[in-house]
Design a protein around this nucleic acid. Sequence first.
DNA 1: ACAGACCGCGCC
DNA 2: AAAGGGCGCGGTCTGT
Length: 536
Amino acid sequence: MRLPDGTDRAVPDLAAAMAELEARDRPRWVLPATEECYPDLLRAGVRLARCHDLALTESILLACAGTPGRPRNLAAAAARLHGLPEPADRPPPSRAEVPGLFELDRGSVPAGDPLAAAAAVYADQQRRLDADPHPERLRLLVAAESAGGLAAAEMTHHGLPWRADVHDALLTELLGPRPPAGGKPARLVELADEISAAFGGVAVNPDAPGSVVRAFKKAGIEVPSSRAWVLREVSHPAVPPLLRYKELARLWVAHGWTWLDSWVRAGRFRPEYVVGGVVSGRWATRGGAALQLPKTLRTAVRADPGWALVTADAAQLEPRVLAALSGDLRLAEVSGSADLYASLAADAFDGDRGHAKVAMLSAMYGGTSGGAGPLLAVLRKRFPHAVDYVEQAARTGEAGGIVRSRLGRTSPPPSEAWRALTGSAEQDDVTERRSRQAARNWGRFTRNFVVQASAADWALTVLAALRRRLTLTAPGAEVVFFQHDEVLVHCPAELAETVASEVDKAAAEASHLVFGPTPVRFPLQANIVDCYADAK
DNA sequence: ACAGACCGCGCC
DNA sequence: AAAGGGCGCGGTCTGT
């Protein structure tokens, strides 16, 4: 390792040496990639408070420079510095792979002098950060992203408390007993039979959309697809069992016994988070579909005996973010309410909360179906600054430009194919229409990007602030889940009140760090529960 | 037989 | 006039 004074020190036991330095100095460690080295440290019992993750930072800076998607590992970053060919990012580690402690041959650390390469890349990243129009914001983003890297590894290490017995009982109640391998649960077989009977005995495979559409056609009903929301409008005896089948089949296939076998061990669900896995800065996961846990399964998430779960859920984060981004004071005023949509409805939509929500979502997503057009017009009239903000972002995208989040996370430029399609001068009607549509599509993406990515800025900053605070006032508390705008902490029951109060403080801290002295409120509702399903 | 496209649905 | 953001995953279907 290299010390702050620039001297290199060879150590026989890296984990032990890092633990010692951590306890003494709490340094900000410069790590090639937290994802690769921190899990080993955690297993060795070493926890780091702060770091600068070279790979995550490189990824952010490449996006800022308009060149996203290049290899971001230390070896590639060092090669770029010297104008050499860039080695590709290492493929994601497979679950089966159990690498030894600190293997350096994973392709992501440069040969030769890795410490010198890390120092050079770190210095170069500092220079690029300084060159940004808002270096202080981008530095905050990099710090939060790096803290996110640490938090993600810790979450996988601790795991989300998961009661396999509760999960199994729920599956059995809904689907019948676990079928033998290759078999279908009894309840699904029954429903499939009901569906075929409702079609007059015609064999129908409810898993095959084409089969369902054909069966309806034979019955004299034309449906464009077999989507649930389409079928809901159809009056036919096969519809109720079909909808129930879809619901249960989904549970069985995605989160059934097979999922339980492969993802839950010793009372913990350990998904692998991919920090910054979405261009907007949201996280993704590898395997386990951790960010798509169906609400019905929350009942299986229970605190250990003597422990509690503290859930923290941001209420209507994105409209609040838009209020802060745009400086729309009237929308900021509406954000004073815990239920922003109710307050918005009272202000501009004759108390109709549904209308208020549709209008706001349409502004942020770019949709206008389902009668949203007139509602959007009301919103525009009443909150012109907020609506202008997203419409400006949409126009930038339509013109092929890039947009940035509050902290500076940058949208990718459109593809060459997009430029060719939208840029051609001479066009027949078909090309013209496609060109317009491609432009609109990209405009919707950039419109949403500014809001979604700034919301991710805020949520990531909350996570980092909460993690830091908990080590100080509630050591022993473990952040065990993070999903876009929601955090779960598992802690000894006597610490729960402290954790809940730190949740509040972390939200206030993040709001100030990210948006400065904004009048917009960002409530982060903390709940102390035994079972995730009981969280409000 | 296999890979990749498309479908449909879960979460935010 | 019409225009719905971001993901992961497992199913079927299609092309080779």
